[in-house]
Computed example of a mutant assay.
Amino acid sequence: MARRTVDVTPVDRDDLRDVMGLWLAARVDNGSSKEAAGRALTDGRLSTALRRPGVHSFVARIDGEPVGYAIASENPFGLSPQAELAVEQLWVGPDARRHGVAKSLLAAVLSTAERSGCEVVVSNVPTASRDANRFFARLGFASVITRRVVSTSALRRKLAPESVETGHELLRRRRSLRSRAFPAAASRQF
């Protein structure tokens, strides 16, 4: 069976609605609720992000139907010694996977990187996504960094200094509990 032709084009105003639908499907596919993803669309975050300077977005179609998209940004942090293009998002609908759509989208990203003078293409791939990691590894992407993520509330709890009194109180409570659990050990003198 012959592979269907994948057509990849830069996103323009006419494509925005298609990309929004694909983005919504990607968020739901990745575990977000449809309501939460819908709110992110209605507040305009995606359309605002796509209009930023240095952001390049592409939509892939098979037989005229949108089946995937890619969003890339030039040198997102400005800290790399060489110019880079970062693949921020790459998603292909489940029915269109294994038809060369992701490779076609990456080919468009590569062309943009070369035109922009970027020497490196990077992508943040979720650790738990085995298929995505294998896909990028087969294309020559190497693991360079481990990116760790924490919620602001969890980090605040971890960074909150323990007061001296709280620390002493915790130690006293532990010793008290230990002496109740092991009364013979508490009475021994060392």
Rank of each mutant, 00 (worst) to 15 (best):
M1A: 15
M1V: 13
R3C: 03
R4C: 08
V8F: 08
V8P: 06
V8I: 08
P10W: 00
D12V: 07
D12H: 03
D14W: 04
L16A: 07
V19K: 06
M20T: 10
G21T: 04
L22A: 05
W23E: 03
W23H: 13
L24T: 06
A25T: 06
V28L: 04
S32W: 09
K34T: 10
A36C: 10
A37Q: 09
G38T: 13
G38N: 04
R39A: 11
A40I: 05
A40F: 09
A40H: 11
R45W: 08
R51G: 03
P53T: 05
P53H: 04
G54Q: 00
V55A: 06
V55K: 03
F58C: 00
V59N: 05
A60Y: 00
R61T: 00
I62M: 08
G64D: 00
G64P: 01
P66T: 03
P66A: 02
P66W: 07
G68N: 02
Y69C: 01
A70I: 04
A70G: 07
A70V: 08
F77I: 06
F77D: 13
G78C: 08
L79E: 10
L79Q: 13
S80R: 07
P81Q: 07
P81L: 11
E84C: 12
E84H: 11
L85M: 13
V87G: 03
G93L: 10
G93T: 14
H99Q: 14
H99V: 04
V101D: 08
K103C: 11
S104I: 01
L105W: 09
A107C: 02
A107I: 02
A108C: 07
A108L: 04
V109L: 05
L110A: 11
S111N: 09
S111Q: 12
T112R: 09
A113M: 00
A113S: 01
A113Q: 01
E119D: 05
V121W: 02
V121E: 02
V121D: 02
V121I: 15
V121S: 00
V121K: 01
V122R: 08
V122E: 15
V122N: 05
N124Y: 08
V125P: 05
V125M: 02
V125Y: 03
P126Y: 11
P126D: 09
A128Q: 03
R130C: 01
D131K: 02
D131E: 12
D131Q: 03
A132E: 14
N133T: 07
R134C: 07
R134S: 11
R134F: 06
F135Y: 08
F135V: 05
R138I: 13
G140Q: 07
F141Y: 15
A142M: 15
S143L: 15
V144K: 14
V150N: 02
V150K: 04
S151V: 00
S151P: 12
T152H: 12
T152S: 13
A154T: 11
A154V: 11
R157Q: 14
K158Y: 13
K158H: 12
L159R: 08
A160M: 07
A160F: 04
A160V: 06
P161C: 03
P161G: 02
V164A: 10
V164F: 00
G167M: 10
L170W: 10
L171C: 06
R172A: 14
S176I: 01
L177M: 07
R178A: 06
R180C: 09
A181C: 04
F182P: 00
F182Y: 11
P183R: 04
P183Q: 00
P183L: 02
A184R: 08
A185Q: 11
S187G: 01
Q189L: 09
